[in-house]
Design a protein around this nucleic acid. Structure first.
Lengths: 208, 208, 208, 208
DNA sequence: GTATAATCGAGACGGTACGTCCTGTCTTCGA
DNA sequence: TCGAAGACAGGACGTACCGTCTCGATTATAC
């Protein structure tokens, strides 16, 4: 009789009873739909129906369409992403290492399996700060940290000026890459990222 | 090509009879709503009702919510944007000029009046290629072209290596800026853009 | 800008623009569904879909499923119902007239086309006072009034005791009829209503 | 017919192990909810939660919401209802006895504790034949039988015409009562039932 | 006095329908 | 002819319940 209700807590359900089967089906449906019809035309209702799942099962575990997709994408990418996987190469040649990683990133961003979901998530994150934060923390940051670490190693090895801030330097490489990819200014090629690495390492000043 | 089109093209109606009053009201309503409730919760119906305008008046002149907002934003920004206005400074000191322009860009992107609409448009453009193309052409490219021109001038003046591609070099400056702004990785400050300019001009290599 | 909103008025839409086509389609769909699957399994969504109509078109004009059905039923019955149509016979023989009308009522209540909707409406009205009031006013009362009038005429003609209350007397006939029909106590036959008329007219006391 | 049913009948489970505590809690919750929020807004889930009981415990023992409520109401009413309790008075004065019992019925139907559940059950029974049959058998018929018996006694005592059918005569009293109560045509008062008794006993014909 | 099996509270699940909001089209009427 | 207004068919939203199901954790006979 006595209802011990304090306030309307968000109230996470009991995750130990969660249906693994449904979770995976939802991931798959979400990724497929985004790829097939695009993010805007992907609906929760559509995901539920394609996954053979009640809508409530989605609303029970995720707060939004973006959250579903983010998790689905993380699940897809985790065992594959270099950041979560192999790590950053350190052959002793900074230039070559940077070029190799950036080329790999170009390939990944260009892969039709990844392009749709990634764009969707990026867009959602740009507008919605919460999604953005999670996108950043879960997907982007791990990758950026590897650049930073490689650059620090390079500084110790005398390959890079010890005065520079490795984090800012990281963005000198990644910024142009994402710029071209997100805004579709010009084609995103290996040649482009190679140049970026060269320019960033040696500067734009006239070379004596 | 054929001027005498007979098929029932759903062409723009007679724009000479268009109500200037309504157009401006729509611009204002669209920008206000995006700022107040965000892009996703801004609806055509809402814009129409706030502008005191029939829905059809919007559908008659614009193909989508994004198009309305883009035009509204262009209208807002045109007389103000350095790219569309003053032009790029050329004091003979490339480093100082780049720093100044990037600082101005930071201020603009940070201005609460611009932030909402710009983010919304960028996000829409990331997902929808058509919107993206128009966003690029009308808003972004004019600005980028000024960078390119300034860099070419710098090359002729011996301030920059003649071997570099000015367009790619441009992205070395703008990429990190947009990266930090779009993805909210870290605060976007004047100090940050100053460093970007320095790193890009002098390179990351150890300086003798 | 100034929103002249006082309170959240229910706000009747402009009924002059109402689609006659949709209204009739909704009536038909509602009646069909109630007959086919019963009231409880008749849904607004089902009515809308069968009528080829948006749900909102129903919600715009009716407050509830019961209201739709009531109106649909009234529309069906108006040109047919004796109460709304021919009127009550007055042959000068009260007993015969009452028997005839009650037999007609029995036939109507037994008609499979009417039974479903009428039961549904009666049930809805029993629980929901608003529906009940409208059901009473629009469907029942007109019929009851005819009984009352006939009984008054009978009183003037010396066929009935002038001391009795015609309204209460009316219920002496109609009450048992509805009782048997609503509660399905025993079969509702012409013989039954004949007896009711006889008992009510001549009383249950031993007849000298 | 075949006693040795082998198919997996979804029979009632072992009722000897049934939790009395839960049963009573469910009764109480069901009656309270119907009174508080009405039949339509009373849900199985709501009953379960208010009774502090698992949903399955309800589904295990009852086939429907109406069945729960019917049983709950029977449990409430059994020790009180004249039909199930005291029986029908026989003072030798038929008119007085009928008036007394009908007045008691009016009081009961008017009692706020009973009104909600009874209306709900009646409505459910009107639409759903199964519920109706049980409602009739368990709640209504026992009462009606007492009327019939009293009328038979009256016939033997010479208080009533031996030619009349006691069952039909019963409905002459009960019909108008339920009519007014169910359909809310006019207020249900002691005066009204007194008149009904008088009219039915002495007839509507001119007395003279 | 334990086994052992059914019932219990709880609540996740696949679904259906709710009532609301918006979309993009269409129609009406006033300027 | 355009504009304000808004009804229309339709689709999706996020919520509430349905009836089924699966979990331990009690019980309460039957061994």
């Amino acid at each position: 009789m006595a209802e011990t209700e304090t306030t309307t807590e968000p109230r996470h359900p009991d995750s130990s009873r969660r249906s693994e089967r449904s979770r995976r089906a939802i991931y798959e449906a979400a990724l497929d739909l985004v790829t097939e019809v695009g993010y805007a035309r992907t609906t929760i209702e559509g995901i539920a129906s394609r996954a053979g799942v009640g809508k409530q099962t989605i609303y029970r575990w995720w707060p939004s369409k973006a959250a579903v997709l983010l998790e689905a994408f993380l699940d897809l990418v985790t065992p594959v992403d270099p950041a979560h996987g192999a790590g950053f190469p350190d052959t002793g040649d900074l230039e070559a290492d940077l070029k190799a990683v950036l080329r790999a990133s170009v390939d990944e961003l260009t892969d039709p399996r990844y392009e749709g979901p990634t764009r969707a998530l990026a867009a959602a994150g740009i507008v919605d700060e919460t999604v953005g934060a999670e996108f950043l923390e879960k997907l982007l940051d791990p990758g950026l940290r590897l650049y930073t670490e490689r650059l620090e190693a390079a500084q110790e090895a005398g390959e890079a000026d010890p005065g520079i801030d490795p984090r800012i330097a990281t963005e000198l490489f990644v910024g142009p890459l994402l710029h071209r990819w997100l805004l579709r200014t010009l084609p995103l090629t290996h040649d482009y990222t190679d140049r970026i690495v060269e320019y960033a390492l040696y500067g734009l000043r006239p070379r004596g």
